[in-house]
């Protein structure tokens, strides 16, 4: 099984790649969207600025959005989650727009929101087997989905609750860094990879029952 790890050209991909490989998946680091959307699944990493990453998107983003809506598995981490939304206050440029909503600057006295924070989670396959989740963040911006039903996790910082995770089809966005969140974080990555492995057979099964 091959997971694409998208390279916007800035930052640390190494430890995220190692965390994915530890689940027995093969990692292909790529800057080509054709390749990224043509393997078994895609991980959008989380380092850099929104504008910089948005410039790495092709002019026609509808094909990416359509592929993800059709169920191609994707995990967006931090900036990678923000890229799933329409736009960001951080910089110009359009996101993929898979999850309707905007990315806004954190309203807090100390920014970036840096360190380990508690996470409330909804029942979702990526959080399976995790009792109490405390995960590592390094973010100045947060996602505000238009439809609160797309949120699957929340954290509170300086008294304000924000969306820590969101989902659409088989795409998950996480504002924290699972690859930096020790044992629990690695479990989340393993859960995602397991979903990637299970999805083709589930799609096959639903096709058969539909016949």
């Amino acid at each position: 099984m091959k997971i694409a790890l998208f390279d916007y050209g800035a930052g640390n991909l190494h430890s995220l790649g190692k965390a994915i490989e530890a689940t027995d998946a093969n990692v292909t680091i790529t800057s080509s969207w054709d390749e990224a959307l043509g393997l078994d699944g895609l991980v959008l990493p989380g380092v850099g600025a929104f504008g910089h990453a948005a410039r790495a998107l092709p002019a026609d983003i509808t094909s990416i959005r359509a592929r993800l809506l059709a169920g191609y598995p994707c995990l967006g981490i931090c900036l990678g989650m923000q890229l799933l939304f329409d736009a960001s206050e951080e910089s110009d440029g359009r996101g993929i727009g898979l999850i309707p909503g905007r990315v806004r600057l954190l309203a807090a006295s100390v920014v970036p929101h840096m360190g380990w924070n508690d996470i409330e989670t909804a029942a979702d396959p990526v959080f399976e087997g995790i009792q109490e989740l405390v995960a590592y963040y390094a973010n100045s911006y947060v996602c505000e989905p238009e439809d609160s039903a797309s949120a699957i996790a929340w954290s509170t910082y300086e008294g304000r609750r924000f969306v820590a995770g969101a989902r659409a089809a088989n795409t998950w966005g996480l504002q924290f860094h699972p690859e930096k969140s020790s044992t629990a974080g690695r479990r989340i990555i393993a859960n995602f990879v397991r979903r990637v492995r299970e999805l083709p057979s589930e799609r096959q099964a639903s096709r058969e029952t539909g016949r």
Partner: peptide, 9 residues
């Protein structure tokens, strides 16, 4: 280090 460390460095 990054191959085996899963907290920030």
């Amino acid at each position: 280090t990054a191959e085996t460390l899963f907290i920030p460095l």
